[in-house]
């Protein structure tokens, strides 16, 4: 995936460097989901080594899906389709069920690829917005927003873009210091005011600075907020208005950061954030330590918001584009 489509620096978006990077991304996804494979599909292969399709197979499949946090609605949705095809005689043995399950999972994720924002959706390549590309990053507390922003900034900087970060998390102790430190490490300028300053004002400053200094990308950090906090969610609405007043077609992407260990509440989060500020893309973090990842299926199935990136580890390099085939393939790799 091209991270950056509208560089003032005129960098060729697909260089040899990036081809290597793409391979590296696949390797990362494979290794990050290794535990998932061992945990999840390790059991899966046990299920598929049965000799025939019986009730127990379906029960076990359901438990496996549930155990991976897909949620009951998604699990039933997937299994019902498989069951129908099995009873129509299209799936004759457990192995055929496995193939069909794999296809369904890929289809489910791929169905949303064309949706999304003006930067990263498949159709955006033809008509990229003029710089600066403005990305608003949101999520509940503790999902890893700031680290994800650093990783994203790093990718863009590597692509030759001039990146600016807005320290919109003015609430959490030392969040501004943290972003400053990351900015220095990855080579992105950080626009910040003091702790407890108004995030709207910080954003306005950053928009002005991005314009004046010719930034290619502006990534706006926000304080983590539970989606149930009315006033905090209204603050996001205001932030969006501040951006729209200066750039009517922005933010070009509203990136929701989701923690891969989150259970069914992940859906409520995505639903509420989407309703209030219009989420266009999802970044899934902490895939390195968990044996799950099923929330991805639930979110795309129910909300149609595409997953664009996965955070796969601790360093700034540990961010991979989310590629449905790779993700599902990696899950199934023996």
């Amino acid at each position: 995936m091209r991270f950056f489509r509208s560089s003032r620096a005129g960098v060729d978006p697909i260089s040899g460097e990036q081809a290597r990077a793409a391979e590296e991304d696949v390797r990362r996804t494979v290794s990050a989901t290794e535990r998932t494979r061992r945990g999840w599909f390790g059991r899966m292969s046990g299920v598929f080594s049965r000799s025939s399709i019986d009730d127990e197979l379906w029960d076990e499949l359901e438990e496996i899906l549930l155990g991976a946090d897909t949620g009951l609605a998604t699990a039933e949705h997937i299994l019902n389709q498989l069951r129908e095809r099995a009873s129509a005689g299209q799936l004759r043995d457990p192995d055929a069920v496995k193939q069909a399950l794999k296809e369904l999972l890929v289809d489910l994720l791929k169905g949303q690829e064309s949706h999304g924002g003006k930067l990263w959706s498949a159709s955006a390549g033809a008509d990229p917005p003029p710089p600066p590309a403005i990305i608003l990053v949101v999520g509940v507390n503790g999902v890893g927003k700031t680290t994800s922003i650093a990783k994203l900034a790093h990718k863009y900087v590597q692509d030759g873009a001039r990146v600016m970060l807005a320290a919109g998390d003015t609430f959490r102790a030392a969040a501004i210091d943290q972003l400053r430190e990351w900015g220095a490490r990855v080579g992105a300028e950080v626009i910040a005011q003091g702790p407890n300053s108004d995030p709207g004002a910080v954003t306005f400053d950053a928009l002005t600075a991005a314009d004046a200094r010719g930034a290619d990308v502006l990534i706006i950090d926000t304080a983590g907020r539970l989606h149930t906090k009315f006033n905090l969610m209204e603050e996001l609405r205001k932030l969006r208005r501040v951006i729209e007043r200066k750039y009517p077609d922005a933010p070009h992407e509203v990136l929701l950061v989701l923690d891969a260990t989150t259970g069914q509440n992940g859906l409520a989060q995505a639903r509420t954030f989407a309703g209030i500020i219009g989420v266009t893309s999802i970044l899934l973090t902490k895939l390195d330590g968990t044996s799950k990842g099923g929330i991805v299926f639930a979110v795309t199935d129910e909300l149609g918001i595409p997953v664009r990136f996965v955070g796969t580890g601790e360093t700034v390099d540990d961010l991979a584009p989310f590629v449905p085939e790779d993700f599902v393939d990696a899950l199934f790799a023996e």
Partner: peptide, 12 residues
């Protein structure tokens, strides 16, 4: 432990 944790809670 985060109350929003899913099935991973038991493993942790």
């Amino acid at each position: 432990l985060d109350a929003m944790t899913g099935q991973e809670a038991v493993n942790a």
